[in-house]
Design a protein around this nucleic acid. Sequence first.
DNA 1: AGGTAATATGAGGGTACGCTCATATAATTA
DNA 2: TAATTATATGAGCGTACCCTCATATTACCT
Lengths: 207, 207
Amino acid sequence: MSSEVESLGARAPKRARGKQRVAELLEAAADVFAERGFEAATMTEIAARADAPIGSLYQFFPSKEALADTLLENYARLIADDLQELERRAAGIEIDALVEILFKLLRSRPRERAAALPLAAARMDEGTRRSTFRHMMRRHIAAILRARQPSLTADAARDMSIVLLQLVKAVSSLTDEEGLAGRQTALREMKSLAVHYLRISLSASSR
Amino acid sequence: MSSEVESLGARAPKRARGKQRVAELLEAAADVFAERGFEAATMTEIAARADAPIGSLYQFFPSKEALADTLLENYARLIADDLQELERRAAGIEIDALVEILFKLLRSRPRERAAALPLAAARMDEGTRRSTFRHMMRRHIAAILRARQPSLTADAARDMSIVLLQLVKAVSSLTDEEGLAGRQTALREMKSLAVHYLRISLSASSR
DNA sequence: AGGTAATATGAGGGTACGCTCATATAATTA
DNA sequence: TAATTATATGAGCGTACCCTCATATTACCT
């Protein structure tokens, strides 16, 4: 499932067996982090769920933090790539189609996403990393909007991306909630709200 | 600040000094839970921040879970009371004013809210408690909408309350984010989105 | 004043956690 | 084959956590 390797880890896997192990460990880690959150997740459970001894886990990931960061970076890279590709195609796409694509894209890879979101929240303010997950998202969405309509100022695009991302987040949390009566209706209405918002704002900026 | 006492705690305070202590402990607990989340918060730090020895904390709260639940219930009761009062007045209020009041109300008591939201997420599925915080909110918002427009069906009011609460949540998370350029603009636009949504949906239901 | 209930206090028990490391095995290279 | 590098394994170390409890102090009541 996850085929990427860590960047800042202690020892990267060199052989096929190592890479396979790392993939299994990352998959198990994603599940456990998604279920329990960063703090409550334990390295013991992650190793157990990957059917690996605890030593193997630490062979490839020097700490719980490094493991979480690897997971987060992998997910961020996947999404960033998709967003960049959408930016290239954005010029010729209608607004409602754009919203549809955007929503689908940001809700894709639900497993990785379910792990990444708690991790992004828990490990937000570590060290000097100013390039938060959320900032990357905003930059990309703003770029897509400006690709779609070049007359947009940078400030306007930034503001719109903030609103749009909040709407996506709302849709995501509704999608994740099981057994909610009225969920379909709510999802539809939130999408049409997004389309409405984009239409209004884009037409205002084209004056 | 917090003047309520716990309901299911081991020993409720009987004397003035005890009540004062409990208030200080709850305040410190709210801060620590807000900063660190449920899991990462430690009883030691909560006691230290209230300038109380660890034994005093356990005198009044038998466990970390009980402490969190007390905090959550206190906040839920405060908000529920406010919402109920708004329901009584809802009939004569214009839509944009209603949205304004609702948003302000749900963002009030930022300290308690900052603690309650992580706790609600962390302790969502404990025991048989089906009356989640979120369900209570939805019921109240739906009741307010129906008070404002009695022709609303129960289902429609429920769906609208779901959408509305997501919008409020989005606004809240923007409010909490410091130093965000474009925040004011984003807040204004999300509010007008909520008004637009309510107008459309309510007029559709009055046919 | 004496008696009783409420509160104060902090040393420490038990536990689970993150993580280390010495040692064993497998795969690759020379 | 021999040497070397990569990976496997799990007992156990140190620590920090949640919580207990014996004992001391304070406030209230009669």
